[in-house]
Structure formats: structure tokens, C-alpha cells
Amino acid sequence: MVFLRRAEPPQSSSALAAASATQSSSGFLPGALVDRPRLSARDISVYYADVQAITNVSMDVAQHEILALIGPSGCGKTTLLRTFNRMNDSVRGCRVTGNVIFDGEPIYRKGVDPVALRARMGIVFQKPNPFPKSIYDNVAYGPRLHGLVDRQAELDEVVEASLQRTGLWNEVKDRLHKPALSLSGGQQQRLCIARTIAIAPEIILMDEPCSALDPIATARIESLMRELARNHSIIIVTHNMQQAARVSDRTAYFHEGHLIEIGTTDQIFTTPEQSLTEDYITGRYG
């Protein structure tokens, strides 16, 4: 449907202008702020060399909620997600302005250690990417790295608990020391989630975690996300609107690097305020 966007640039850009106008008048989009946020983006802009990927995004993430970031390809969802735990630091030519407040502390500031930050904010990627090590060593990687446990028995406990929470324990308990790459795609992705929660992060970032999986595996991960949301805040980037509608509490819609609309998932999917959002959700665009 790129064709449509090209065909009607005035409509698109005027809608974008309208959306921006809404934002600039109040400083924040309605529904962008929450009480006692875990994580807040304030006026975030991201540039890759000369290209601006994100423009002035401000929004909050609440305690123990699932926030879905949706929007057409190239709208900057993944970039924003990687901005939250400073994964873009290692991307050359990437520059971030504005700030992200995590637990009352700005993370884009001298003296903030991205290593410590990432230990509190896990990330799961689009393609399952287990290390070419054993299943056990994959899960034990984080706790070992940060020295979270003292004894082998403790480590065993952490591995077992993490695998149990992702529902993988019963499937792999007899072959913990087999290579992780021998697992199926869905199992690999759950292993990656187990690997992430083994360091007990406060926030879990998920970048289209189900896009490489079949429907059954997707369903398992979605129910796992609901389960995890009891203890963690989850931000998920997804292409799949049904998925956003099924799992998330709130939804944010992005378009060409701008945050267009944010609100409860019900509101976004039933009564979107912006025409761009409506077009996307109804499948007329994207």
C-alpha cells in the first residue's frame, strides 16, 4: 500500500501536521502520561547520520503493563525500543536527543552505565538468537555475567525457574546440556525470553518476538507475556494488530517517526482519534 501513500501525499502530510499540532499544543499527547510511570520518554529524537528516525516522542510506561508499539514498516518503532536500553549506542552515526527517565533517573547522561541499565531492562529480538552454547548455558549467561548467584545450586534454581516460567522446562529438562540451536524456532524464542528473565529485569523490551514463529508458538508466547506482565512492564513492538489487540493494555501508533496517538488498546482499536491511526488499523494503509 506504499502506492497509496505516494498517490495522496497531501492527505498524508496534512494528517501528520494535524497530529503534530495536537501534540505541540499541549506538549504531550492525551493518554501519553500515566501515574507513577516506570519509564518515561521525554522529547526523544533519534538521528542516523543525517536521517531523522524519531521526532520528539514523549510517552510513559506504567508499572506492570504491556505497551504495544504499532505502525507501518520504517516508522521507527524498533529504533525507539532500542533507545530505551541504549542499544543504539553501538550503532555508528546514531545520535539521540531528549531523554528517557527510568526510575526517576535520566539514562542519557554522562555517568550512566549502559551495562547496568541493560541488566535491569531485558530485550528480546525479532529473530530467535540463542548463543551457540547449551540450553543451560544460554539461560545461565546473564546471572553468571552479573554475579547474581554464588553457588552452583542457586544457578541451577534460577535456570529451572526461568525455564519453568517460559513453559520450556518440561520440554528441555532432560537435555539441558544439548545445544540450544537444536531447539525449534518457537522453543528458541522462549529460550531467549527465559534467558532475559533470568536476570530478573524490571522492564522487558520485545521487538516483534513472534514474527518468525508459527501461530501455535505465537499463542504460547502471547500467554507467556500476559503471565510475565504480573511482575514486569513489557514494551512490545508488533506488526500484528491482532496481537497488539490481544495482549496489550495500551497501544501507541507511530507514523514516520512521529508518535501519532497513544491510549488504551480498546480506545485505539475502537475509536481512534487520528485519521492516520484509523487508516492503519482498518487496513487501508500499511
Binding site: 553501538s90 547496568a116 541493560r118 538468537n129 548463543f131 555475567l145 534467558r195 532475559t196
Partner: peptide, 23 residues
């Protein structure tokens, strides 16, 4: 993607190299 996974878990560059890239 392997480097991302390791750094996403809070490994330093050197730890990523020693524990993931080199093996």
C-alpha cells in the same frame, strides 16, 4: 544478532567477545 543478544543482557563489549563471539 548474537552480539545484540549478549549486550542486551548487559554484557560489556569485551565480555561479549570473550563469551560469545570468540567461541
Amino acid at each position: 544478532s548474537l552480539r545484540d543478544a549478549s549486550e542486551g543482557l548487559g554484557a560489556t563489549r569485551g565480555e561479549t567477545i570473550r563469551h560469545v563471539v570468540l567461541p
